[in-house]
């Protein structure tokens, strides 16, 4: 079923919308949640919360890109849950935070900017990067995938993935300083 058809079901308040979303994207969303939470039960719970939130958001929202829209919701819910659980498990999120803190370095992030502003600045930066560097970066820091998974998916070595991430983080740091995100 096409995404536009699924969105139409939400607009019609047809509960099949959730069923079809789960059928088409359930595994994709569970994977995003699992990468963050490292727990099967919490990941499933997070997916159910996503469907509830999507049901309440459409209408009035008309997502331009449905898959990215629901992925973003799942990611935010999973990160909230991760925070609420006290972030005890050492997983990709902990590793990502360690890596991104290198990127922040001695700087602090401007308090005048919210997450959306910073997200826009990161988007501008990523669009100028090579396709492979961008995909690796997004798979690591949006999808919170392990280095091993990314290497596996892209048919590259783990070393090549780490090198790419390190270079992209360094360049991002410079970009965010220039955009006064880092002060």
């Amino acid at each position: 079923m096409q995404d536009t058809d699924i969105i139409a079901l939400y607009f019609e308040r047809d509960e099949q919308a959730i069923e079809k979303t789960d059928e088409k994207y359930g595994a994709y969303l569970k994977k995003i949640a699992f990468n963050i939470l490292c727990d099967v039960f919490s990941s499933e719970e997070c997916c159910n919360d996503t469907y509830f939130k999507v049901w309440n958001s459409i209408p009035p929202t008309v997502p331009v890109c449905f898959r990215a829209f629901i992925a973003r919701i799942t990611r935010n819910l999973a990160l909230d849950k991760y925070k609420a659980q006290g972030a005890t498990k050492r997983g990709t999120v902990t590793e990502s935070l360690d890596e991104l803190s290198e990127c922040v370095g001695e700087d602090t992030i401007s308090r005048e900017l919210d997450s959306k502003d910073i997200g826009a600045a990161i988007s501008d930066f990523l669009k100028k990067e090579s396709e492979s560097a961008r995909i690796i970066f997004v798979r690591r820091y949006f999808y919170c995938e392990s280095i091993k998974d990314i290497a596996f998916r892209l048919g590259m070595t783990e070393g090549a993935i780490k090198t790419s991430l390190s270079r992209t983080r360094q360049k991002l740091s410079i970009h965010l300083k220039a955009r006064t995100v880092f002060i």
């Binding site: 935070l97 997450s115 959306k116 820091y141």
Partner: peptide
């Protein structure tokens, strides 16, 4: 500050453009 900055960046990644999220998927 380092860790808080990293958390802010990780959170901000949720707001990157749809086409970038799509491309990586």
């Amino acid at each position: 500050d380092n860790i808080n900055g990293a958390k802010t960046l990780l959170k901000a990644m949720s707001y990157i453009d749809d086409d970038i999220i799509e491309e990586a998927a």
